[in-house]
């Protein structure tokens, strides 16, 4: 492969930095919005006003009102808290769990590796949402149980990535050198393996945020996730899908909110991958 010239590299690096700043800022704004959502709402998101139900967007209600006359803008803002943080928690849990299992399997090998990887095969071969439904059904409804159910089916992907990366790293000269330098296994894993496999794992988890948001919403729709009247984007969309032809703003506003946040996290994930590539740090 031909190495790009220094100038091209510099331009590329600067644009990556620019993208990182832009998407990072957007993501932080989104998170801040979610944290302070309670103070940002123009109306009480749970206050019903049946005389004013299904009102079209206007100056008073920027995104209109739903079938109980609740202000949609307030509900979308408040819903961001539930939607974004439960998704982030879920993704954090599966990333940590999957990576830990994968690194352990890749490093240790042997029978434990075989057993854990066959278990992950079973999870990968089984339709995930069906299993999540079963788990959530057994544990009962509620957002916590929905998160547990989705975590139970989503870790194998991360375990796979972490394992294959660890296996590849294990044979490199610099890991041999680290062993010869007298580093213990724990030190090698934390200082050399994790930083070097974090790139692909992090990008996968960033790209998974969207999927997980939708799957959580799916469980909410089936009554196994967030319970009404709690405002959550997924359940708001599911609840109101019958209104799509008469009052489309009620379905579309949480939909657009999901779309925009998923987009921001995806682009941020791509940018982080580009930025984390050590070849980008050439000086």
């Amino acid at each position: 492969m031909k190495e790009p010239t220094v100038r091209v590299q510099k331009i590329r690096r600067d644009s990556v930095k620019m993208r990182l700043i832009i998407f990072g800022t957007l993501a932080v704004l989104l998170l801040l919005g979610a944290i302070f959502s309670k103070y940002l709402t123009p109306y009480d998101p749970y206050l019903q006003d049946l005389r004013n139900a299904k009102a079209a967007p206007s100056a008073a209600h920027l995104l209109g009102t739903d079938r109980y006359g609740r202000d949609m803008l307030s509900r979308v803002i408040v819903g961001s808290w539930t939607s974004i943080f439960s998704t982030l928690l879920l993704v954090a849990v599966i990333t940590a769990l999957g990576t830990a299992i994968g690194v352990f399997c890749g490093w240790h090998g042997g029978r434990t590796d075989t057993v854990l990887m066959r278990i992950s095969d079973i999870f990968l071969a089984f339709p995930g949402l069906v299993f999540a439904l079963a788990v959530a059904g057994v544990l009962g409804g509620g957002l916590h149980n929905a998160i547990i159910a989705l975590a139970a089916i989503s870790w194998p992907k991360y375990a796979r990535i972490a394992r294959s990366q660890t296996l590849a790293l294990k044979e490199t000269a610099y890991l041999k050198a680290a062993r010869l330098a007298g580093s213990s296994t724990v030190k090698i894993i934390f200082k050399h393996i994790l930083p070097n496999i974090m790139g692909p794992v992090l990008v996968t988890s960033m790209l998974d945020i969207g999927t997980m948001m939708m799957e959580l919403a799916g469980l909410s729709f089936l009554g196994l996730g967030a319970k009404p009247p709690i405002a959550e984007w997924g359940s708001m969309m599911s609840d109101t899908r019958s209104l799509l032809s008469t009052a489309p703003w009620v379905t579309l506003s949480p939909g657009i909110a999901v779309f925009v946040s998923v987009m921001i996290f995806n682009l941020l994930g791509d940018t982080i991958r580009d930025y984390a590539d050590p070849k980008n740090r050439r000086r």
Binding site: T172, Y174, A177, G182, K191, N196, P278
Partner: peptide, 18 residues
């Protein structure tokens, strides 16, 4: 390993890129 050390065939790959 305090008594024995090694120099590898591939210099660049024997250092952690990060």
């Amino acid at each position: 390993y305090r008594k024995m050390q090694m120099v590898f065939q591939t210099p660049t790959e024997s250092f952690d890129p990060r």
